Amino acid sequence: MELLMSVRPGRGCTVLEVSGELDMATSPQLRQALQGLVDAGDRQVVVELAGVGFMDSSALGALVEMYKALRAAGGRLSLAAVQAPVRNVLTVTSVDRVIHVYDSVQAAEADVPSADDATIG
């Protein structure tokens, strides 16, 4: 199955919409797309997974790797609109304890730290 991705601006973040299966064949595309966002200066990234019904360990690795890259750059990676089979993978592997998972993109956007939050402290 072909992996489709598109980027759009969100409220205080960048949204990467992903559709297809995330597996060993497609996870490099996901990693490359996320790395491109980091390289472009995006720091608050929400990955919308509403169109993803399958995710394997290689895709989990890509997400964790890019979570760490964004965190090191002072940003955050979040997941949104995750279907039940993918949510089960995130739960079983405890990745959902590290990367924030939201029911919708709107919920993820509402939880994006504002620029004011970043300057406090």
Rank of each mutant, 00 (worst) to 15 (best):
V82M: 08
E109A: 07
D96A: 14
V86A: 10
R43N: 00
G36N: 05
R43H: 02
V38L: 14
D117Y: 05
E109T: 09
S6L: 05
S104G: 08
K68N: 12
D23Q: 04
S114M: 03
P85G: 09
A115P: 03
L34H: 03
D42C: 15
A72N: 12
V18K: 08
A62N: 11
Q106R: 13
M1N: 02
L34A: 02
V46K: 11
T91S: 14
R71A: 14
D111L: 11
S58W: 06
N88W: 04
D42G: 14
D103H: 12
V112H: 06
V38A: 15
I120P: 01
S94K: 15
V101S: 06
A115T: 10
D23A: 10
N88C: 10
G75D: 01
A59C: 07
Y102W: 11
A115I: 03
A25Q: 07
Q106K: 11
A118G: 08
S114R: 13
E17V: 13
V105Y: 06
S58K: 09
S27V: 09
A73S: 13
V98R: 09
L63A: 06
R97H: 09
L34P: 10
V7I: 10
D23W: 01
A84I: 08
Q35E: 14
L70G: 07
R76Q: 15
A81E: 13
A115E: 08
T119I: 12
V18F: 07
S27F: 08
V47D: 01
S27P: 04
Q29G: 06
S94F: 06
I120T: 14
K68P: 02
A72Y: 01
L63G: 04
R11G: 06
H100N: 13
S27K: 12
S78I: 13
G74C: 10
D117T: 11
V89H: 04
L79C: 12
R11I: 08
E17F: 01
F54K: 00
R97Y: 01
S19I: 02
Y102N: 06
G41E: 11
Y67A: 11
E2A: 10
V18I: 09
Q106P: 00
E109Q: 12
M55C: 15
V7R: 10
R97K: 15
A84F: 02
P28V: 13
L34S: 03
D56P: 00
A25G: 02
R71G: 04
L34D: 00
G61A: 09
S58Y: 05
V45M: 07
A33R: 04
E21Q: 11
V38G: 08
L4C: 06
E48K: 15
D117W: 07
T93C: 03
M24S: 12
A118Q: 10
T93L: 01
L77Q: 05
M24Q: 08
E2M: 06
G10Y: 07
R97F: 00
N88Q: 14
H100S: 15
V64D: 09
V89A: 12
V112Y: 03
V47S: 03
Q29A: 15
T119G: 10
G10E: 06
Y67K: 08
H100T: 14
E109F: 03
L77G: 09
E109S: 09
V45H: 05
A81W: 09
V92C: 05
V46L: 12
Q35S: 15
R71P: 01
A84W: 00
G12Y: 06
M55W: 01
L90V: 13
T93W: 00
D56K: 00
M24F: 11
S114L: 05
